[in-house]
């Protein structure tokens, strides 16, 4: 379709509606960002939009971020602004925890799924088709079904509140989709690649690591971005499997806790929420094409 047929008034209407929608969609985030830089007294007494009345007069600083991250609290200026135990928020630890959870919880399922996808696509063995269908069929199972049984196992194995425990959980819940998507990709790679390698005497393992993995980078990257953002933003799995140990709490858990404990301290909540958004937003703006593809491909995740 082209816009050439539209009259001028129609054009103004189309552009106008879109601009209004874009403003409506962006305003909430701008309000959050603006508030996160304002001092406590301002945030709690006037609307964030008032800083746009006179931007040169706006009193903005990074102090809220320093308080919630727990960095540079020695600075007397910052210290004077810490109230009601806000020095214990320590989101910097939670950022590290989120990274420690999200990176392996992305890499492990991808690795396991890529091996499995190759096995299902290119190695003959009895029961192959039935096993593959069983794996894909698990896409329909919502992860809620697994929470209680796995929680019981973790109590017995002492895996509650450990990184290994949550990596394995995210691996389990992410695998059906990962196998399905990577199978779709790997099974369509041209057959000649394998045959010439086999004739040269290469084993499946060599073919997989030397040929298939490098060739699958686009598919792996899309899934990796989806899975990383999913794990980073996940709340439920973290609440269920990490709550046993406060030291390993991830950002989303900490943010939920702040909504309870610091529910009216909007200068802290806005800074905390923005910290939790930084990584996904950076990925979104730097790898937009992969990001969109990954999120679309991952939308069926159970």
């Amino acid at each position: 379709m082209s816009g050439t047929r539209d009259s001028l008034s129609a054009k103004i209407l189309v552009y106008g509606v879109l601009v209004i929608l874009a403003i409506v969609w962006t305003t909430p985030t701008i309000g959050l960002l603006a508030s996160s830089f304002r001092p406590e007294d301002d945030v709690s007494s006037t609307g964030w939009w008032t800083i746009f009345n006179d931007l040169s007069e706006a009193d903005v600083s990074l102090d809220n971020y320093r308080i919630v991250l727990g960095v540079g609290l020695d600075d007397p200026d910052v210290q004077a602004k810490v109230r009601r135990g806000a020095e214990n928020i320590q989101l910097f630890d939670a950022v590290l925890n989120s990274l420690t959870v999200a990176i392996p919880a992305t890499a492990i399922p991808i690795l396991i799924a890529a091996f499995a996808a190759y096995g299902f696509a290119w190695i003959q063995f009895p029961g192959r088709r039935a096993l593959f269908i069983a794996v894909v069929a698990l896409l329909v199972v919502p992860l809620q079904i697994a929470l209680i049984p796995i929680l019981k196992d973790y109590l017995r194995l002492d895996l509650g509140g450990t990184f290994l425990g949550i990596w394995l959980a995210h691996t389990g819940f992410g695998l059906p989709l990962a196998v399905y998507l990577l199978y779709n990709y790997i099974s369509t790679l041209p057959r000649d690649i394998f045959e010439s390698a086999f004739i040269d005497g290469a084993s499946h393992f060599t073919i997989f690591t030397r040929l298939i993995l490098p060739l699958s980078v686009p598919a792996l990257a899309s899934f990796a971005i989806f899975q990383f953002v999913w794990v980073w933003n996940d709340l439920l799995v973290a609440l269920v499997f990490l709550s046993a140990n406060p030291e390993v709490e991830v950002l989303t858990q900490r943010l939920l806790g702040m909504l309870g404990t610091f529910g009216t301290d909007w200068h802290l909540l806005t800074a905390g929420a923005f910290i939790s958004m930084i990584f996904p937003l950076v990925i979104f703006f730097s790898l937009q094409r992969y990001f969109v593809r990954g999120l679309l491909a991952g939308s069926v995740k159970g």
Binding site: A113, F115, A116, Q124, F125, V135, D153, L168, F173, F208
Partner: peptide
């Protein structure tokens, strides 16, 4: 054994985390 090195881990994790929990739940 080669096929099971490739698909075994995925099948084992899925059995533990999704297939069997459905029955256990």
């Amino acid at each position: 054994l080669t096929p099971y090195v490739f698909v075994g881990p995925a099948v084992a994790v899925l059995a533990w985390y999704l297939a069997i929990p459905t029955l256990r739940s």
